[in-house]
Amino acid sequence: MKLINVVAVKTIDINDKPAKACRECQTPCKSACKTSCTVGNQVCETRKKPTRFIW
């Protein structure tokens, strides 16, 4: 019997260090007058090409 289904695992690297970050990805603006983007709505652009829409 399966009581727990995995949706996604380890989506965040807990050992990541700021000095390693490229910071090339989009800058998220949480303002409601735009689309109140959060980092959760973003992708790492070295791992995946972003969709056309950006912030």
Partner: peptide, 11 residues
């Protein structure tokens, strides 16, 4: 929400 390719912790 992209659970597979989200930003790094630093971001």
């Amino acid at each position: 929400l992209d659970l597979e390719a989200g930003p790094c912790l630093s971001k």
